[in-house]
Structure formats: C-alpha cells, structure tokens
Design a protein around this nucleic acid. Structure first.
Length: 547
RNA sequence: GCCCCGCUAGCUCAGUGGAUAGAGCAUCUGUCUUCUAAACAGAGGGUCGGGGGUUCGAAUCCCUCGCGGGGCACCA
C-alpha cells in the first residue's frame, strides 16, 4: 500500500544546485548551501544562500555567483524555477508541476525507503509495573509510539518493546507490599500503599491457592510476578486506549533464566572491565578515569539493575540481532546514558547503535507528583477527560526538550479547544465534499484535468503537499515526531482557505455545475485528504470522515 | 561543586547560521438562506533572560552570569 516516491523535491533541488555549483568549477567539498523553506512569500518556496556560501571559496561577488547559479541550475521535471536575489538563489514551484503532483498523490504519500529494511528495536516507556500510569508516563509512550510509526513509514523494520522490570529493588518492594497486605499488615517502609495493592493481594489469595501459608522468602517472588503480571495487563489496557501497541513485553527475569547477564559479566571480566572492591563487583573502563565505577554485583551478592542491563544489551544486539536500538527515557535518567554507552562499547557493541532519546519531565503545576499528597493524575483519567486524540496531540506539540508544567484544568480546557480538531475538521470537510460531489455528479470524468487548478488557494494546498516528504525525512533523521503536528496544522490551514473560498464565492466551490472543474477540484481534495490522513496516522491521531 | 534541558508575544509553544522572528489560545473588528462557521479575513501585541565573542550574517555557534526544571547511590 505504501506509495514510494524516490524522495522529496527538496532533495531533487539540492542535487540540481550542487550540480550547478560543480559547473562553476568548484571542486572537492562543497559547503552547506543552506537550502530550506523560504520564510517569506516573496522569496519563493525554497531558498539557498549558495552565493554567500561560495563567495569566499570562489573569491567572487556573492551576487554574481547566485546569478550564475540561478541561470544554470536545471531542476528535473520542471518542478521549480530558480531566481537570484542578492547572494541567494530562490526556487519557486511551477504551477504545472504542482498540478501534476496533485494527480500523483496516493494513499501513503510521503513514504520513503530511508531505512532499507534495517532491523531496529524501539524500547520505550518501560515503567516499573508497580502502579498505574500517570500523566508523566504518557509522554514517553506517545513519543516512543510516534517514533515507531515514523520509522516504519520510512522503511525500517521496527520492533516495539516494553522492558518489564521484575527483579529490581522497586519491584521487590512491590512484592513485599503485596505480601504485607495479604497478611493484613501495612506495607514496609517505602512500599506501595495504594488500594490496588490490597486488591492484588486478595486476587492472589484466590488465584494462588496456599500462597498465604508460605514464608515470605518463598511467597514474595510468586506474589511479585503475579502482581506485576496484573499490572502489566492494566498498562496494556491504558496504552491501548491511546492507540499504542507493543510487539514484545520482555521480562527481566527471562534474562537471568537465559544466563545473559552472567555471560556479559564473564565477557567484561575477561576484557578487564571488572574489579572487586569492598566486597562488591564494579564495572569501570580502565582507559576512562573520568567516568566513575559502577556496582554490578552488590556485596550481599545481589545484582544491580545494571547487571540486568548488561544482559539486556546482549539480548538485543547479539541474540536477537537488532542493528540498532532506540531507547526513549525520561530526563531523570540522563546520568545513566554514559554508563550504558560505555557498557555497550565494553561488550563490543558499537555505542552509535544505541540511540537514547531523552524527553524532559512532566511536572504537575501544584508540585511534584505524589500519591500521598493527593497530587496524582492518571493517564486513564486524562484520556477520560479529553480523549485520546487530544492527549496525543497535546504531548506531541512539544519538543522533547521542553519541560511540561501540567495543569489538569487547563489541559481539559485545551482539550476542548485543542488544535487537533482544526486538523480533523479539515479532513472531515474534505471527506464530506467528496460525498456531496458524487451525489451531485453521479458520472464524473474518470481522469482529472489538473491544469484547471489555477486559483492561488488551490495551488497553495498543492504547495503544502509538496513539502510533506521533507517533513517525513526530517522527522526520521532527527527522531522528532513533533514536527508532524506543526506540518498538519499548516496543511489544514491551506485546506480550510481553499474550502472557504467557496463560501465566499460559490463559483469557487469544489462542487460546481462544470463536471470537469468539479473533477479537478475533487482530485485536489483527494490528494489533501490522503496526506492529512497519512500525517495523522503517523502521530496516532484518527482522521474522522465527519464531525 | 559537576552534568543535562529550558528561558522567544499576555499565556502555551514552534523556529536546519541566512533576507522582514512565527503558530495556537486570549483580546479587538468584520464574514453563514446555497459543498460542515470546530471555519475564513483582518488588527494590536517582541530588548528572542542579561552581557561579551566568532561571522559578510546569530533566537540559532562559543564564553560568562542570572532564573527555572531534572540528575549526580551497593535506588531505578
């Protein structure tokens, strides 16, 4: 179904420009010509500061260089015309090419084969399954899911994984809390106090006959695994409401059963990365004195989570053979990045293949999230209040680098006025007008004469469509899906203007008496609708046919 | 003390070293008997945190200071 174009028109123009630069006699490395979207309408659609960039290399007047480039550059397919303006070379789409583009757009427009089938894993939002997801967790899940969607769209073979912690101190404390509730006691210091823990204990009493007869050392691991399993089910349900799925829920205990952490430790020992100190086993790069040593096995013999992570690296790169792993972490883990990178290197894994995306935190406006202080908003509650589409759009409109100060009342208000509806409404309008057209004109020409699309607002829609492959490419290379909702908004604006032209003057409606003209405008609607749908899909937002 | 992120319009935020810094919300003014007004057209609103520097050109790169958020465990 994916309709694969060779690449965006930006890439085509870039190549043509480079070729023109070669013709001027520039050899070797060509500086970045800064080809990008023109910011002012008078400067065309794409602009390059090629003249200024080459001024020094060629020791010539930038204006002259730009003029010569504009003269000689030949954009394939007549897609754009070049003109020099000072030291800049500006490119403007030709009407003819924009019209032809409209006819070429199919469902899935913008799909690219950037990944060439590269097998990669995206591991995201692997929260300790010891409680319900809250609004902070929403960010990583939505970001990670959207990254997967973008990567899949650009020819990557993506596996979506949730790493289920089951053997760390948090989950042990969780198991101990369930054990305490099973025996009618208060959870231990630092344990889990929510009502759901008591409910889990009661469920375990029913599902695990005899569990309350076992001593804690035997009962806790059983209760822990049972309760974690139940919590994982709840997390699955919560993320499913946000249109998120995982391929694999990978349990930490599987690592130890398969002996991978042990193998990793052995490998590090042989390579000289481990040492004993104070009765514990430490990891450290003997070459790197800056990075502090880290405990792998505690003096009490219990491994740290870091030991599991060593095995987890082997599981993914060696055993399962992923060429690249993308991890999505909250910024509170950023200090762990260098350690994971150096661990990977020590295990013989290229650290470049471990890509770690950090997103900043979501803080409640009233203060740090705390169940005890009554400052806690679950992801489910947020979805209940504003709906999945608005939640996803809300998170994805922000760059991962921005801290979110979360205000539930504001989020609900913004939910009702969320810009997501603006985009969805554009899609619904297009769908509706296509239905109206077929009712009014049961027999329309099979082929559209796109040369009839001459109004500026019609060409502006086509212009936005031309930019879509660039957005896809940029979102892929930067792993920044937030670029997509901003594009969606621009496209929706062009669509609304186009539609509204018909409200102002009826001869500009899509559906008019002339079947040829109707057919041509319908072609534009179809192209815009496919593109909106495709873009919304990539951010996991629905594209309703009526609103 | 060290490390990471941020500081852009009243608010929430975009902004690959390029030309005149943008959007949504809010405020104000217009536009529906005819394909969906959840829309469209327009107006006001800016020392891009402060100060240095690099550059033909800086919101963007470097240094420095300030403010806010997050980290610096035999927690995860």
């Amino acid at each position: 179904m994916a309709f694969v174009l060779s690449g965006g028109v930006r890439g085509t123009i870039q190549e043509a420009l480079v070729e023109a630069v070669r013709k001027l006699g520039v050899e070797g490395q060509i500086p970045d010509l800064e080809l990008g979207r023109a910011k002012v309408a008078g400067h065309g659609d794409y602009a390059s500061s090629a003249g200024l960039k080459l001024g020094r290399v060629l020791r010539q007047d930038p204006k002259l260089i730009a003029a010569r480039l504009a003269e000689s550059v030949a954009v394939p397919d007549g897609a754009a015309k070049a003109e020099a303006d000072g030291g800049y070379v500006n490119f403007r789409f030709t009407d003819d090419w924009l019209q032809r583009l409209v006819a070429r757009i199919q469902p899935g427009y913008g799909a690219r084969d950037i990944g060439r089938g590269e097998r990669l894993q995206v591991e995201f939002a692997s929260i300790n399954p010891t409680g319900p997801l809250h609004i902070g967790h929403g960010r990583g899940t939505i970001l990670g899911d959207s990254i997967c969607r973008v990567l899949e769209f650009t020819g990557h073979d993506v596996q979506r994984e949730y790493y289920v912690n089951s053997d760390n101190s948090q989950t042990r404390r969780f198991g101990a809390s369930v054990y305490a509730r099973l025996h009618g006691e208060e959870p231990p210091e630092g344990g889990y106090t929510g009502d759901y823990v008591t409910e889990l204990a009661e469920m375990a009493r029913h599902d695990l006959p005899g569990i309350d007869q076992l001593p804690e050392a035997e009962a806790e691991p059983k209760l822990r695994m049972y309760a974690l399993g139940k919590m994982v089910d709840r997390i699955k349900a919560s993320v499913a409401r946000l249109n998120i799925r995982y391929d694999e829920w990978f349990w930490e205990n599987r690592l130890w059963e398969s002996g991978l952490p042990q193998t990793a430790i052995e490998r590090l020992r042989e390579a000289g990365y481990l040492k004993e100190k104070d009765g514990a086993l430490w990891f450290g790069d003997p070459e790197d004195v800056e990075e502090e040593d880290r405990v792998v096995i505690r003096s009490n013999g219990q491994p740290t989570y870091f030991a599991s992570d060593l095995g987890y690296l082997l599981s993914r790169f060696d055993v399962r053979g992923y060429n690249k792993v993308v991890e999505v972490w909250g910024a509170d883990h950023h200090g762990y990045v260098p350690r994971m990178k150096s661990a990977a290197a020590a295990l013989g894994i290229d650290p470049q293949k471990l890509v770690i995306i950090l997103h900043q935190m979501v803080n409640l406006k009233e203060g740090k999230m705390s169940k005890r202080a009554g400052r806690f908003v679950t992801l489910d509650e947020l979805v209940d209040r504003v709906g999945s589409d608005a939640v996803r759009y809300f998170y994805l409109l922000r760059s991962p680098d921005t801290t979110i100060e979360f205000d539930l009342e504001l989020a609900v208000t913004q939910g009702n006025e969320n810009p997501v509806y603006y985009a969805q409404y554009a899609h619904a309008r297009l769908s509706n007008v296509e239905i109206t057209a077929t009712e009014r004109h049961p027999r329309l020409p099979e082929r559209a004469d796109v040369s009839l699309l001459t109004q500026p607002w019609e060409l502006d829609v086509a212009r936005q469509l031309a930019f879509w492959p660039d957005v896809v490419e940029d979102a892929t290379t930067t792993l920044e899906p937030h670029r997509i909702p901003y594009y969606v908004h621009e496209l929706a604006t062009a669509v609304h203007r186009f539609y509204h032209a018909g409200n102002a003057q009826s001869e500009h409606r899509v559906v008019v008496d002339d079947p040829e003209l109707t057919r041509a405008r319908l072609e534009l609607c179809r192209a815009a609708r496919h593109t909106l749908k495709t873009a919304l899909d990539l951010i996991g937002v629905s594209a309703p046919e009526r609103m």
